Computed example of a mutant assay.
Amino acid sequence: MVQLSDGEAVPYDTLVIATGVEARQLPAAEGIGGVSTLRDYQDALKLRGALVDGNHLLVVGAGFIGLEVAATAISKGCVVDVVEPAPSALMGKFPAELAERIHDTHVDRGVRFHFGQVVDQWHVENGEITSVTLSQGQTLRADAALVGIGTIPAVGWLEGAGLELANGVVCDHVGRAAEDVYAVGDVSNWHHPRLGENRRIEHRLSAGEQAQVVASVLTGDAVPALDPPFFWTDQYDEKWQAYGYIHADAEVEIVLDDPEANRLVATLKRGGKLDAVIGKNAAKHLIPFRRELRAAETQTIEQ
């Protein structure tokens, strides 16, 4: 059974955990007007209201959320500063060679990056942010700020419940966390047979596909193979798409580079095996690689 916050006990035959994630916060910035994260509709409305021509936007975090917001803000006429403690954008999330291209596009559009730094002081007037001072002493005007420093799986309510919790709810390859207990979506840490390990995948399509797998298990239908992870990011006039498993030690080969069409395709391999493909404005060109990756995933599960 599950006990609710008002004390009511709700019995179940099968439990599916789909509580998602919470935005990681910066304690020093909590409660300051004009500083927000981006997790829900109200956050989006609040941020949109700050993207006004001439406003200065501070973005903390050079991940995908931070860079997408930076691109949108630049298109609205904002002055954008991105503060990132790592030495480069998208570190650990994207191959360095490709992340550098994304970074260069932002610089060409006017985004100012401050790598290897954190916000040391938040300056406030009448409860609203006005500026920040960085760890190397530079002060930046900030009419608004977005904190995009990742997420935390929403598993606090499961402490002591007997489930294995490690970067989310640990599951097998069909989402089973314990007898009659399953988890799907951002909160779940599924086992991926082709990797031979567990990984928490925070992509919208993966959440839907995991739900289909669990639904098939519960209804006794044929269980579909979980598709390799797929996500995309839209920044300016560039749509980057990634399919498969991205590893830091992968060998990156650019198999198509067409500057005039602003198009690129890169493969990621380890030990000669294709692990992922990444494209920029190249959806059709990714199709054969996606077929190869999907076939390899299905074959692994069947074995």
Rank of each mutant, 00 (worst) to 15 (best):
V2K: 09
Q3H: 01
Q3G: 01
D6H: 02
G7Q: 06
A9E: 13
P11G: 13
Y12E: 14
T19K: 11
R24P: 03
L26Y: 04
A28N: 04
E30L: 09
G34M: 07
T37Q: 13
L38P: 10
R39I: 08
D40V: 03
Q42V: 12
Q42G: 11
D43S: 11
A44N: 12
R48E: 09
A50M: 14
D53Q: 11
N55H: 12
V59S: 04
V60L: 13
G61A: 12
G61F: 06
F64T: 00
E68M: 03
V69G: 00
A70T: 11
G77L: 09
V79N: 06
V80T: 04
D81V: 01
E84N: 03
S88R: 15
A99T: 12
H103Y: 15
D104M: 11
T105L: 15
T105K: 14
D108E: 15
G110I: 03
H114L: 02
F115C: 08
G116Q: 10
Q117S: 10
Q117F: 00
Q121R: 15
H123Y: 05
E125R: 14
I129T: 05
T130D: 02
S131T: 05
V132Q: 00
T133K: 10
T133S: 12
S135L: 09
Q136L: 10
Q136P: 05
Q138P: 00
L140E: 01
R141W: 00
A142H: 01
A142C: 02
A144L: 03
A154C: 12
G156H: 05
A161G: 08
G162K: 08
C171A: 06
V174Y: 09
G175S: 10
A183W: 01
A183D: 08
D186K: 07
W190M: 03
H192D: 04
R194K: 13
L195T: 13
E202L: 13
E202C: 14
L205A: 15
A207P: 04
Q212R: 12
V217T: 11
G220Q: 14
D221H: 10
D221E: 14
A222E: 15
V223G: 02
P224F: 11
P229R: 06
F230Q: 02
Q235F: 14
Q235V: 15
K239D: 04
W240R: 00
G244N: 07
V252Y: 10
V255G: 06
V255P: 07
V255W: 04
T267D: 01
G271R: 07
V277E: 04
I278C: 05
A283G: 13
E292D: 13
L293F: 07
A295H: 14
E297G: 01
